[in-house]
Write a protein that binds this DNA or RNA. Structure first.
Length: 260
DNA sequence: ATGCCTTGTCGCACAAGA
């Protein structure tokens, strides 16, 4: 089965691209970020018409995450556990049944964290600590679990066109990368690094300054696999061609095929 | 140098993104 993640940057503005992607790439279970819509103002029917179930954790204007699946989504969790005062819609998790058992997908939109001298950066680090705690709980289930989304983290120097320019950025600061590798140390496998480890294979290019034609990108969208998911890893990839479509998102989809 | 884009909101510009 194919799992995918994509930060679409507004579902109303991106609906045509999302539908074309679902028809062309046909992911079985996908997570979307930055839908920027409330749950009752979504173009739900158009997505369901393509045979997808949709579960959302929406928010007006900003953030917002969704799960899409060809089979029914069960056991849905909305919001990242660990802080009831956090009102930002950045996490949704669900389970689908397959012939070989359950597959769990957590879809996340990790806070950007810039500017780093504001409250936004400690919020990011606190969110990452909550994510690690939640992931540790889920790993105890010992089931195929994919923790995917827009991490807003550049893991290594080969994941950015100009490391020096990003040295002090919230996406690349040492504290950010340390938190990311702390999460990884629980036992996750980065699907892209494991199967398509080409340096400078990016997932985001800024709208400004001609970043896409110059390939001034960063790799910040990741699919992290639990050991039980990594055991079933077939292949993974980045759908870079979508950055050339009409009215593109600034992110492109990332996908992984599991033998389930 | 937080802007040279883009989105959404209820606006006649703004915040936020990365």
């Amino acid at each position: 089965m194919r799992l995918a993640t994509w930060n679409i940057n507004g579902i109303k503005a991106r609906l045509h691209n999302v539908l074309a992607w679902l028809e062309k790439d046909s992911p079985d279970f996908a997570c979307l970020q930055e839908i920027k819509s409330e749950d009752d103002s979504l173009p739900r029917l158009e997505i369901e018409a393509l045979g997808y179930h949709i579960e959302t954790h929406g928010q007006k204007g900003f953030n917002g995450v969704a799960l899409l699946s060809k089979s029914p989504i069960e056991d849905v969790t909305r919001g990242l556990p660990g802080d009831d005062s956090d009102t930002q819609a950045r996490y949704i998790e669900g389970v689908v049944s397959t012939e070989t058992g359950a597959v769990r997908l957590g879809g996340l939109y990790l806070p950007n964290g810039n500017p780093v001298d504001t409250e936004k950066y400690p919020y990011k680090l606190a969110w990452m600590a909550r994510l690690k705690a939640h992931a540790a709980e889920r790993l105890k289930l010992e089931e195929p679990f994919v923790l995917a989304g827009d991490y807003n983290v550049i893991p290594t120097e080969t994941d950015v066109h100009d490391p020096e320019a990003w040295r002090d950025d919230a996406l690349f600061k040492p504290e950010t990368r340390a938190a990311y590798w702390g999460l990884m140390s629980l036992g996750f496998t980065d699907a892209i690094a494991a199967t398509a480890p080409e340096p400078h294979a990016y997932t985001f290019w800024d709208f400004q300054g001609g970043a896409w034609p110059k390939n001034h990108g960063i790799r910040i969208d990741h699919l992290l696999l639990s050991p039980e998911a990594a055991n079933r890893l077939s292949t993974a990839g980045i759908s870079m061609e979508l950055r050339s479509w009409e009215k593109p998102s600034d992110h492109v989809p990332v996908w992984v095929d599991l033998d389930v």
